[in-house]
Design a protein around this nucleic acid. Structure first.
Length: 552
RNA sequence: GCGCCCGUAGCUCAGCUGGACAGAGCAGGGGACUUCUAAUCCUCAGGCCGCAGGUUCGAAUCCUGCCGGGCGCGCCA
């Protein structure tokens, strides 16, 4: 069970409302911006005013009186007041705050974990870049977003499988093979042309050298013109090396997968052909203009789509029929595809595939990631694969580090285009919010290092609390809610925002409140508060794949 | 033309299943280090929350229309 420290209060308020008005409302509790509005406030009376046909203030007064008399809360409430149009403002006693800290530190499962209302088995697919070149900053955003979301969902109690779909079939792989073969030939003095849309990056030469180490001059005599066997070797083995490199690079930014699923394997083992045939048997296809069409509009797509071109080649969609049905049949409750925003129009046909195949299209959920653009010296940086001006994920990480890269990329909602100022990212390395959060963590550990012994978790509350202590604790109390919301809304950026908030409150607490050397009860409470904060920051950063250093 | 996303402080963006005077970081002004690390804190300044209507006791948040920007609408992948 997750610990939601506010839940008992919500329940008590709901019960009080029911006793006084007969209706049981959903209770919203907020920490007011104005300290004179108390520690917590609820607008619940305003919502009840209409159906109860009484002025909101009157209802609020009744609920407040009932609440104040609630024996189960007695020692934890300091005061209950009605203010404004009918807000109920609650001031909590030190005993409540002490109970919260105790709850956080003494919980049997991790604080804030397993908060999902209904745990699901979820299959996430993300990055899935062609193995024809290194990952660029767009992939980096996908990776940072999806990996953080996966961690978040798992933390919330879901079972998450992570998969990378390798687009290793078709023309672009041949291009890669030809490009590598050309560079391979050059190592032996054999000059061949790299086609117009071939790949020219340095990495191509690197792969050629690696393959040369593997097979020596085995293929030198089959390069001009290139033989089928040679092409198969250079595309196949080259793609494998490329995927290895991509996997390594992702591990470097703490992004790992449970499986790498090859598109080409679906063709090799006949799955694509079988699934297309099954589609035909179901009567969801037709021929027109020499092509085979998927009648996806039957399932809500805006128009039908080609499965097999007039020239006999299967389209990318045909692979997706096999792949998505395969995924859907593995028994997950939900499939999450993380795709670029330009794939928006692709969603209805994916759902159509599932519906046609007897799976539910509803199972599929797509997170669309908006574009990352780079700005350098005040101008949009033009990125082109052809011109070799692509900024790779590796470049970015080398520039600003893994922690800053991940935090930067996941700090903003995936639904909004991200403009990343390279100069700023470099220069601001020290000012980057990630350091702000990390520093709060090291500060907390610094305090704890001073101690000779740990205080008991159930240390009694001091008679009075500093406002900074209260603010910090109220924010800690929000953690389970923040996690649950971030998971439900598929928005890991909320965790980043929460952590910046928490770090700010902790820094303020640090400046106002000494910990070591205070009277016993004060010190014990503050130590426990510090422990709870350190734990929460470390956990939160972990959900973002960012480290929580002990010293900086 | 149709679909999706975005439009909030000088800049980059949070907040959007409606709640009390709109937030953060950066940039700008002024302060705070014999004290658990100043990678910090405090403070000041800075906003027709794109525009116009509507719903509501209450709208940055919901609805409609418009304006501006991005992306997509292939027998490409």
């Amino acid at each position: 069970m997750p610990l939601d420290v506010l839940e008992p209060l919500r329940t008590a308020i709901g019960a009080a409302a029911e006793r006084t008005t007969g209706a049981r409302p959903a209770v919203v509790l907020n920490a007011p911006a104005q300290p004179e509005h108390g520690d917590l406030a609820t607008p619940v009376a305003m919502g009840l005013a209409k159906q109860a046909k009484n002025p909101p203030r009157e209802i609020a007064e009744a609920i407040a009186a009932d609440l104040a008399a609630d024996a189960s809360l007695g020692p934890q409430l300091q005061s209950v007041e009605v203010a404004g149009p009918g807000f109920i403002n609650i001031r909590l006693a030190p005993a409540w705050f002490a109970a919260v800290v105790r709850g956080i530190l003494g919980e049997s499962v991790e604080f804030g974990a397993e908060g999902a209302a209904a745990p699901e088995r979820i299959l996430m697919e993300y990055v899935s870049a062609n193995p024809t070149g290194p990952l660029h900053v767009g992939h980096a955003r996908h990776a940072a977003y999806a990996d953080s979301l996966a961690r978040l969902l798992a933390f919330s109690g879901h079972v998450v499988d992570r998969e990378y779909y390798i687009n290793d079939h078709g023309r672009q792989m041949e291009m890669l093979g030809i490009s590598i073969a050309s560079r391979y030939g050059a190592l032996f003095g054999v000059q061949t042309e790299i086609p117009e849309d071939g790949y020219r990056g340095d990495y191509v030469g690197g792969i050629a050298e690696a393959l040369c180490d593997e097979v020596g001059d085995r293929w030198v005599d089959e390069l001009d013109p290139i033989s089928d066997d040679a092409l198969a070797f250079f595309s196949g083995r080259g793609g494998e090396l490329m995927i290895d490199a991509i996997r390594e690079e992702l591990i470097g930014v703490h992004v790992e997968f449970d499986a790498f699923f090859s598109e080409d394997s679906l063709h090799q083992n006949g799955r694509v052909a079988r699934e297309v045939a099954a589609l035909q048997e179901r009567g969801d296809t037709y021929e027109d203009g020499g092509a085979l069409w998927f009648a996806s509009s039957k399932y809500g797509d805006e128009k039908d789509r080609v499965l097999r071109r007039a020239d006999g080649d299967l389209t990318y969609l045909a692979s997706d029929v096999a792949y998505h049905l395969d995924k859907a049949r593995r028994g997950h409750d939900r499939l999450i595809d993380v795709l670029g925003a330009d794939h928006h129009g692709y969603i209805p046909r994916l759902r159509a595939i599932l519906d046609s195949g007897g799976q539910s299209g509803e199972k599929l959920e797509v997170s669309l990631i908006q574009l990352v653009s780079l700005v350098e010296q005040g101008e949009a940086k033009k990125m082109s694969k052809r011109a070799g001006t692509l900024v790779t994920m590796g470049d970015l990480v080398a520039d600003i580090g893994v922690d800053a890269t991940r935090f930067f990329l996941v700090q903003r909602s995936h639904e909004t285009p991200l403009e990343l100022d390279l100069d700023l990212a470099r220069e601001q390395s020290q000012e980057n919010p990630v350091y702000y959060v990390q520093y709060a963590h090291t500060r907390a550990l610094g305090i704890l290092r001073q101690l000779e012994s740990e205080p008991p978790v159930d240390a009694p509350a001091p008679a009075e609390l500093d406002p900074a202590e209260k603010t910090l604790l109220m924010n800690l109390a929000r953690w389970p809610e923040a996690v649950a919301e971030a998971a439900e809304k598929r928005g890991p950026h909320r965790v980043a925002a929460y952590l910046i908030d928490l770090a700010r409150d902790f820094h303020a607490f640090y400046h106002r409140c000494r910990v070591a050397g205070e009277p016993q009860d004060v010190q014990s409470f503050r130590v426990n508060l510090t422990r709870a904060t350190a734990w929460t920051i470390r956990t939160g950063l972990g959900l973002l794949g960012v480290s929580a250093p002990e010293r900086m």
